[in-house]
Write a protein that binds this DNA or RNA. Sequence first.
DNA 1: TGCCACATGTAACGCGTTACATGATTTA
DNA 2: TAAATCATGTAACGCGTTACATGTGGCA
Lengths: 181, 181
Amino acid sequence: MSLRHALLGLLAEEPASGYDLLGMFQRSLAHVWPATQSQLYTELTKLAAADLITVVAEGARGRKEYAITEAGHAELVRWLLNPERGTPHRSPELLRVFFLHQAGAPAARRYLELWGERFDGYHAELTALLESTDWDNTTRYGGFGRLTLEWGLRYAEMNREWAKWAVGHVPPDGPDRPDAD
Amino acid sequence: MSLRHALLGLLAEEPASGYDLLGMFQRSLAHVWPATQSQLYTELTKLAAADLITVVAEGARGRKEYAITEAGHAELVRWLLNPERGTPHRSPELLRVFFLHQAGAPAARRYLELWGERFDGYHAELTALLESTDWDNTTRYGGFGRLTLEWGLRYAEMNREWAKWAVGHVPPDGPDRPDAD
DNA sequence: TGCCACATGTAACGCGTTACATGATTTA
DNA sequence: TAAATCATGTAACGCGTTACATGTGGCA
């Protein structure tokens, strides 16, 4: 149930419409919590029904501007300070590594090299974001966006380093299959 | 659709029953791709219907032992070598960081300290796993389990370091709320 | 006037979770 | 003979994805 809290978090800064929020998701939250248009509108309706947000203005083209309520802000803070036990970590890419010997050592090495390259790209993307933003002037999100960006940078670096290490540690293929059990 | 490939991967090593596979998931795959009992049996039925696996023996208590078919192995290798564009990264914990200034700087620092401690624990858990396993003797998964474990260790370290850094970079609370917009 | 951007909504489907439901075999 | 373990299955629910569906307002 994190989408609802993401919406509350955004609306805690300033009122916005579903369309506005969609833009914010695509621009600033895309790396942390992607969401689709359809999901977003559905959740806004639910949040309004639960009185965590309310419509504060209606504009042209059916535009509805939402604002967070007191109850909504209370819920946001409650969620922030009560980290329920995390969702288990699931990574299809890492799962592949687990079974990669089925593909043979050369293919495995290629896979890991590709891994490194993908994170090169990701790192570059984030670096561009870091440099294109004036972090001093960003009162919005109080600079915490910088912390999450730093996490992303370190994550990318870690993956690059790991991939490099892993390529060198791919076990050799067995003669055929040991099957010694 | 990764659960099905995880099952194919395990069955590529040796035939097993749903119950056996459940044990393997809990023991060795828990950190990479957790799965529940109910999910697993459902997926096995589907895999059998698709002829990617077959029942090779029936034992006591309705036990059904499955083995991978040729089609199943082909599908496994296909999946291994075709990394479709990754599921977007979603982390409720990181999402919290994004909005943490709503909770105030002291609470934010406490949150980040807790983050570091949790990864201390995780790192210790993985280290224990590393030391309790004889990696030379592990033909099963051809040593690739070691690569994923290494990833986990580095991930834990990265998070510890980041949390330490982040605690020192928590922006001060605004006087009240700038609201200058 | 025609297109683009704005703006909101619904329906179908898949996967993961929790809970329920049942029963056989071994072993203490 | 009672409990633990082995063993399989179904149902309800939530969230995320894709696709469909519709309509208005501004501007060139």
